[in-house]
Structures are given as structure tokens and as C-alpha cells.
Design a protein around this nucleic acid. Structure first.
Lengths: 248, 248
DNA sequence: ATCCAGATTGACCGGTCAGTCAACGCCCGG
DNA sequence: CCGGGCGTTGACTGACCGGTCAATCTGGAT
């Protein structure tokens, strides 16, 4: 949460053990240096969380067993329930942790003095970089939460919705200030923008789109250019003007 | 399959019993008029399929029981397994049936002599009208198949991918002929376009977007205008030209 | 040395379902 | 009127898995 997403930030650095400063229960006290700094008192909770990401991403939340997570983490089955109330709570924790990172990032981007197009490009960059740096977490979030209309999607709707709202704020301001067209519905535009990005992530997740660093970079430019600039050639002979269907 | 999607067509008419002319096993022989056309020998298979749509849409594929489907259809549990090999096969059948309708529609639209923008508008209309006319089927297809990276998404990837391909064909032709920008990556653009639409459907499914007839109509125009025309105002002072990130 | 609290273990329980199957009945042809 | 096949029924089973819990371990404090 603390880190301001200046420039290259993304939600991809704290996946392993380097994570700290989280909210509530995460605050494990590692009872440091008991005598001579013995072999790292590993944070089992984090271990389980990280293992869960791998297992959920690979086999899907519903298709995997809690024992899979325990095995992957190298801990006993029961320990999972020592740290988490249920299987769901693990996913819950993972989602909230990361999504908040993104909400904060979007807000920080909006508060910067970049142009609207640059802001959208920063948002796209943040999301795409998040996927690049930790594809498994993003896969879990998108597949199991964001796009899951049942179970989790419903519960975190409000959280998810906030992201659309914050993007809409960017669009609305730009529209008001004349950078974007005046008659834009900011909410629609935000949904389209986010939907386009998530579809690209889905393409990468499903293996429908090539996964190279150049492609990721190219995608950032392309999605913003498509949404902001449009597909149509500037001087092209556009048959209809503002563009509604000619006949009913 | 038969109906050419001229103008107002959508995948929303054959949901109930009026469906026939399907592929394989659907060919139930209703042994018509045994003597005096008794009370309609209802097609139980179709009954189950329709009930499954309702149940899957309402409770989700994984969260519902086969007995729910049987109850909703008003038939015995075992009969479901008389017509379908497994629970999955029901979803399978539903998906393939409808998706093929959409693929055919897109192809027909592409073969029409409309402009690129009009073609995209027709595609958007088809999908949105499909949702409007049978939101439950579309919800099931999107939530349980299209956006499910595990189980079903994987199995029908090829089928799903065809839709992106066909949209890409439209974009590519337009790009080649000068209506769209020449340097467009058709596949990326197609993914963005489809992703934007699916996000709108998701918004309706989740109840994040208002569900009125006007909204549906407005959405058609808006999504096409956003993707084809872009968000930026024509004469606006765009800081960067072609638009890549200033630094990095 | 002793104690305790929290960490850790894994066998076990209980509930839930997908899928099976033996039986029944309805209709039709002979 | 009989026979057989297909449509139909629903109780049952076997596997699977989330969650519990009593026992055990560990390491610091006294």
C-alpha cells in the first residue's frame, strides 16, 4: 500500500516472502534473533499464501484440494486451518491484498499531472506489468474472482467496482476538460477500457496471445491507442457521420 | 444455423421449444399424430436443456446439483443421464449450440457489403441483442465457458478463438482497404473489441450497469464509437503524437 | 529443570453429489 | 391379447473433500 506507483510500479514485487507492512493478521512476529539468527523462522502463513497462488493458478480454485495447497507449501494439512478459517478465506486474502494495490495505483495515477491519455497508459501499464511480473496471482484474481459471477465475484463486487469507478473518474475529467469528447459516458468508456485490457490478459492466460516482453510492451501502446485514438484512419471516408446504424 | 442474421437477428429466439434442425442427437422423432394428436409429446431433452440454462444461470454450474436441473425440468433424476452422458455434457451442448450461431452470424456479417464500422456495429448488436433476448443463456456461456480458464474454457478454446479470428478478419480487411489505420494489429484490435463488449455484458450480468432497452441500444453505439472513433476529441490538444510513454 | 502458549501434525468425520441400476410402465406392432 | 423396447423413475453407492480436533512438538520465560 505504501509504495507510490511512480513510473514503473506494478503489483508484482511482493509475491514471495519480501512482503510485509500488510494490514491485519499478517503481522507475524518473527521473534527475531533468539540467540544467533537460526535458519530463518519462515513465515508459514506467507508460505501457504504463495503456495495457494501456484495451486489455484494451475488447477483452479474449485478443482484443487486444500491438501494440495498444504503439500505445495510443505506444511501439514491442519496448519492451513490454523492460519485461515476456510479455503475461501485464502482466496479472499489473496484478492483483497492485490486489488487494493491496484486501486491505490490508479488513484495515485489519477492524482498525477499527466494527460488523460498518459494516465490511461499508466493504468494499462500497471495492470499489464502486474501480469508480467506475477502472472499466477493475476490469473487467480481474474479467473476466480473478477470473472466469476458466482461465489467470489458477487462477494467482492463492491471492491471490483471501485476500479471501474476510478478509471471513470479519469475519463470524466478528460471529457470535462475537452481532451476527450464531451458526450462520452465515462462509466461505459471505463468498462470498455478495462474490458479490453482484461481480455488481453485472458488471451495471455489462455495462451491465445504470444507472451513475450515485446508483446507486453506493444500491447500497452495498442490498447491505449485503440481506445483513445480509435481504429479508424483520420482521413478515411467514413460513410456515416457520428455513427449510428443507418437502418433500424 | 439456417437463419441468416439479416439486420436484427440474434441468438435469442430458439431458447424454448421452437428449436429444431440442430446437429446430431437432438433429432428426436416426436412420432407425430399417433392417432389424434394427443397432448404434445414434449421433447424431454429440450426440456432438460432449457431447465439447465435456468439453473446454471441462477446458481452456477459448480454450485448446482444435477437434481436441481431434473427438478426444474420436472423430470426424474435418472432421465438426465438418459439424454446426457454427464453434467458437463449438458453445458457442452448448450455452449456449442449457441456459439455456433454467433460464429455463423459474424461470418454472414463479414460477407455483407457494409462498411467496417457498420460490420462491427452489427456484430456488437448481435451479441448485445443475444443477451437482451436470452440473458440466461448468455450468462451461462460467458461465466461458465468463455471466462472459465479451467475446465470448460480450456476444452472449447478453439471454438472460442474462432470468434476472435472472424472479428480480426473484419478489422484486417478494413485496415488493408484504408478505412482503419494501416498499422493496426487486427488480432489485438479484435480482442479489445470483443473484450469491451463482454465487459459490458458482465456489467449487466453483475448488475453494475442499468438494464433497460435504451441502455442496450445506447451501448451498441457507444462501444463502436469508442473502438472505432476513439475517446479523444478530434481537435483536442493531444500532447504526444502517436502516443507512447514519454519515458522508458 | 519446569512450564506454558502457540505452532504443527495428520487421522478422522460428516456431508455432499455425480453417476448407476434394477425395476416399472406405456405404447406399438403383431 | 401378448411381448418387447424405449422412456422413465428414484433409491442407492462410492468417492471425494472441507473442516475438526486431540495429540505432539518447540522454544522462550521463570
Amino acid at each position: 500500500m505504501a509504495a507510490a506507483p511512480r513510473g514503473r510500479a506494478s503489483a508484482g514485487e511482493s509475491a514471495s516472502s519480501a512482503d510485509n507492512g500488510d494490514s491485519r493478521a499478517t503481522a507475524r512476529k518473527p521473534r527475531r534473533r533468539s540467540r544467533a539468527a537460526r535458519a530463518e523462522p519462515v513465515d508459514k502463513r506467507r508460505l501457504i499464501l504463495d503456495a495457494a497462488v501456484r495451486v489455484f493458478a494451475h488447477r483452479g480454485f474449485h478443482s484443487c484440494r486444500v491438501s494440495d495447497v498444504a503439500d505445495e507449501a510443505g506444511v501439514a494439512y491442519g496448519l492451513v486451518y490454523h492460519y485461515f478459517g476456510s479455503k475461501e478465506e485464502i482466496l479472499d486474502t489473496l484478492f483483497v491484498e492485490r486489488w487494493q494495490l491496484m486501486l491505490d495505483a490508479i488513484e495515485a495515477i489519477d492524482h498525477s499531472d499527466a494527460s488523460a491519455r498518459e494516465k490511461l497508459e499508466l493504468v494499462a501499464s500497471f495492470i499489464i506489468d502486474s501480469y508480467r511480473h506475477s502472472p499466477e496471482v493475476m490469473k487467480v484474481i481474474i479467473v476466480e474472482v473478477t470473472r466469476a459471477a458466482h461465489s467470489f465475484g458477487r462477494e467482492h463486487l463492491e471492491h471490483i467496482n471501485k476500479a471501474y469507478d476510478r478509471i471513470a473518474l479519469i475519463v470524466e475529467a478528460a471529457s470535462r476538460e475537452g481532451a476527450f469528447k464531451p458526450d462520452i459516458d465515462a462509466r461505459f468508456a471505463a468498462m470498455c477500457f478495462y474490458g479490453a485490457i482484461e481480455q488481453l490478459l485472458s488471451g495471455w492466460i489462455f495462451g491465445l496471445l504470444p507472451r513475450t516482453d515485446e508483446e507486453y510492451e506493444r500491447a500497452k501502446g495498442l490498447v491505449v491507442e485503440t481506445i483513445c485514438g480509435g481504429l479508424e484512419a483520420p482521413g478515411a471516408p467514413t460513410p456515416a457521420g457520428p455513427g449510428l446504424l443507418p437502418r433500424q
